Simulated scan of single mutants.
Amino acid sequence: MLDAVFITVSVTALLLAAWCGFAAYRDEPTNDWHFIGMAVVTVAALVQLVVSIVRLTQGDRPEQGTVVYVAYLVGALCAIPAAGFMSLAERTRWGSAIVAAGGLILAVLELRLNDIWGAGHG
């Protein structure tokens, strides 16, 4: 996996988590700006998916298996949109907390993706 993509997705996910966590602390629901932030993080995860698929088609292989790697990629892509939809159902501070948790989950998935691909391999 390209380190720049991994770092970009991880950092944007953590920034979104901090931003929405602060909104939850201030007793605020998610707003339009939060959804724009979620879109940015989701686009970064989509870029990661495309770059990874291109690398897989070029013959690069993750150390711990292609199927597991692709499954984690799809999960990483779905983490923020799922949190966003759940936050729409919960229009209180807990909606912001859900998105914050989604950002943290995505950051953890990124660590696992990096581990599956193989440290120093990409």
Rank of each mutant, 00 (worst) to 15 (best):
V5P: 02
F6A: 07
I7M: 14
I7D: 06
T8C: 03
T8W: 01
S10C: 01
V11E: 15
V11C: 02
A13I: 08
A13R: 09
L14A: 13
L15K: 13
L15W: 09
L16I: 02
A17W: 02
A17H: 00
A17I: 00
A18G: 04
C20M: 05
C20Y: 00
F22C: 08
A23S: 12
A23W: 02
A23R: 07
R26L: 15
D27H: 11
E28F: 04
P29E: 03
T30Y: 01
T30K: 07
T30L: 07
N31A: 14
D32W: 14
W33G: 14
F35L: 05
I36E: 09
I36K: 15
I36T: 15
G37T: 04
M38Y: 01
M38D: 00
T42D: 04
V43F: 05
A44L: 01
A44Q: 05
A45F: 03
L46N: 03
Q48R: 12
L49G: 01
V51D: 14
S52A: 14
I53C: 11
I53S: 09
I53E: 08
V54P: 01
V54D: 05
V54L: 09
V54W: 14
T57C: 12
T57W: 14
Q58L: 15
Q58Y: 13
G59R: 08
D60S: 11
P62Q: 07
P62L: 15
P62F: 04
E63V: 10
G65S: 08
T66A: 10
T66Q: 10
T66K: 09
V67E: 13
V68W: 06
V70D: 12
Y72H: 11
Y72I: 12
V74S: 11
A76E: 07
A82M: 11
A83W: 05
F85E: 12
M86E: 14
E90Y: 03
R91L: 11
R91I: 12
T92M: 03
R93Y: 06
W94T: 15
G95Y: 00
G95H: 02
S96Q: 04
S96V: 07
S96K: 14
S96C: 13
I98W: 02
V99S: 03
V99C: 00
A100M: 04
A100K: 04
A101N: 04
L104P: 01
L104K: 07
I105P: 04
A107Q: 05
A107N: 02
A107S: 14
L109S: 11
E110F: 02
E110W: 01
L111H: 11
L111G: 15
L113W: 00
L113P: 01
L113C: 04
L113V: 03
L113K: 04
D115G: 12
I116W: 01
W117I: 10
G118H: 00
G118F: 06
A119Y: 13
A119P: 02
H121L: 15
G122T: 05
G122W: 03
